[in-house]
Computed example of a mutant assay.
Amino acid sequence: MKIAKSICGILIILSVVVACTTAKSQYEKGNYYDSVMRSVEKLRKSPNNKNARETLANAYPQAVNAFMDKLENQDHANVDFQYTKAAGTYRKLNSMYESIQRSPGAQQVISNPKKYYKTLDRIKPLAADEQFEAGLYQLSMGNRENAKQAYYYFLEADKFVPGYRNVGEKIDESYHRSILHVVANLKPVQSRFYEVSADLFYKQVENTLKQIENNEFIRFYSPEEAANNNVQNPDQILEVNFEDFVVGETHTKETIEKMERDSVVIGEITLDSGRKKEVVGTVNAEVALYRMEVISRGLVNLSITKNGMNDKDIVYQDLPGEFVWFHEWGQFNGDQRALSDEQVVICQNKRITPAPPQQLFVEFTKPIQSQLHNKLISFYKNY
C-alpha cells in the first residue's frame, strides 16, 4: 500500500513538472495564450507551483498585448471578416479571464485579469452581418457548392446572433439547395433459369448508401420514395443491375493414378535363432480421385447518370464476381499404405450434393458487393 501511494505521488509530481515545462516551452515559442492556459491549469492542481506562477506572470501580459496588436493590425488592414476574427480574439481574452477566475492560485499571480464581454457583445452583430452577407453572396451564385458555403455562413451568423434577420429561412433555403438528390434504382434479378433473390445483396447496398448519407448533403431515394417526396428532377440517377450471371456450372474431373511405396513392412519371419524379423517390401495401389467444381459467376453494372439535358453518364462500370464450390472424393484398390496422406483423406469422403443455387448466388455476389461499396464510398466522398 505504501509503495502504491509513493508511486501515485511520484506520478503527480512528474505530471506537474512536465506540464510546467510545456507551459514554459510554449512561452518561449511565443505561444502566449497556450502558455497562460497551461499555467493556469497547473496552478489549479498545484496552487503554489513556482514555475507555473512565474510562467503565468510573464505570459499573461504578453498574451493580452499580442491580442491587442492583432486587433489593431486587422483594423488598419481592413481584412476580410474583420469582426468575425475580432470576435474570436475577444473570446480567447475572455477564456483567459474565466480560467484565472476559476483558479485561486492563478488569481494570486494575476489579481485583476481583463474581461471583454461588453466589447464582444458589441461586435457580435457586426460579425453576424459579415457572415449573413457572405451567405447571401454565395447563395446568389446559384450552384450547389456555393449553396453549401452559404449554409455554413448562415449557421455562423445565427451563432453570433440567434435569429439574426431572416437567417432561419436562409439556413433552410441554402441547405435545401445544397442537397444532392440521387434516385437509386436497384433493379431486381431477371432470370428464366433460376429462382434466386438478390435481397441480401441489395440490403448491403442500401447499408452503403446509408453510410454515405452520413454526409448531410446527400440523399438517396428509391423510385417510390422519389415519387412520394415529389423529387421530380433529381441531380443523379444511380442504377445497379445484374447484367449477366450463371449459377451452378458443374465440372467433374477424374484422376486415376497408380501409387507405389517401398520400404514398407509387409510381413514378419522367424529366424533359425527364434528371433523375429520384419520383412520390408513395396506396396501398390490404384487410386481414383474425383473433384466436382460448381462455378457461379456474374456481372453487375453500376451506372451514375447526371440528370439534365444530356443525361450524361459520370460512372459506368461492370463489376465481376465469381465463386467456385468444390468437393473431392475417391476410392482405391490395393494397399492403402501406398497412398499419400492427402489421398487417404480424400478417399474417406463421400460424394455430396452441391450447395443450393441461392447460396451459390450469394457467394459470388460477395466480391461484387465489396467492389460496389468501395466504388460508391470513393465516388461520393467529395460531394
Rank of each mutant, 00 (worst) to 15 (best):
I123T: 05
Y137R: 11
H327W: 06
Q82M: 14
F379Q: 02
G142M: 09
Y117F: 15
A157C: 03
K114F: 10
I100G: 01
Q232W: 09
R38N: 10
V280C: 07
Q317E: 14
L180C: 06
N310Y: 14
G308R: 03
H373A: 07
H76W: 05
T250M: 14
S140D: 08
S296A: 07
Q190W: 15
V18A: 11
F326P: 00
H181G: 06
L271K: 15
Q343E: 14
D69C: 08
E216D: 12
Q62A: 13
D335G: 04
V40I: 01
K114M: 13
V167E: 10
R261A: 04
P357K: 11
K92R: 13
K375M: 04
V324Y: 07
V231D: 05
E239W: 11
T252W: 00
E41W: 07
A184N: 05
I377R: 02
T365V: 12
E239R: 13
I123S: 03
D341T: 12
F193P: 05
F154I: 08
L372V: 13
D262G: 15
F326R: 07
Q131G: 00
F332N: 09
E268N: 15
G321Y: 09
T305C: 00
E278F: 11
S191D: 15
R144Q: 09
E28H: 04
D335T: 02
M1T: 15
E328L: 06
E363V: 03
I368Y: 12
V362L: 06
D75C: 06
L302W: 00
P113Q: 05
L56H: 10
V247W: 01
L43N: 06
Y27L: 15
V189F: 14
N241W: 09
V196K: 03
A87F: 01
K85F: 01
G274L: 10
R275A: 14
M68S: 15
K170Q: 15
E363R: 11
A127L: 07
K381D: 10
L93S: 06
Q343L: 02
K187V: 14
N112H: 14
E213H: 02
G298T: 02
S222V: 11
R44K: 14
A127V: 02
L180G: 02
F81G: 08
D129L: 08
T270L: 12
Y90N: 03
E72H: 08
N241P: 05
P354Y: 05
Q108N: 15
S46G: 06
N307G: 09
I123N: 01
N228C: 01
G163C: 04
N301V: 09
K70L: 13
K92F: 03
K210M: 13
R144Y: 01
A226H: 10
V40A: 00
K170Y: 13
Q358F: 12
D341V: 10
E72G: 01
P162G: 03
P125D: 02
L299S: 11
E257W: 02
P234K: 01
G163N: 01
L180F: 07
V183Q: 09
P104A: 07
T252N: 08
E216T: 03
A150I: 13
M259T: 14
A106D: 08
K29Q: 13
D80H: 03
E286I: 15
E28V: 07
S222P: 05
S370L: 12
A226D: 10
V344W: 05
R275C: 02
E224T: 04
H76T: 02
L289M: 11
E286W: 11
C347K: 02
N31K: 10
T250R: 15
E206A: 08
A147F: 03
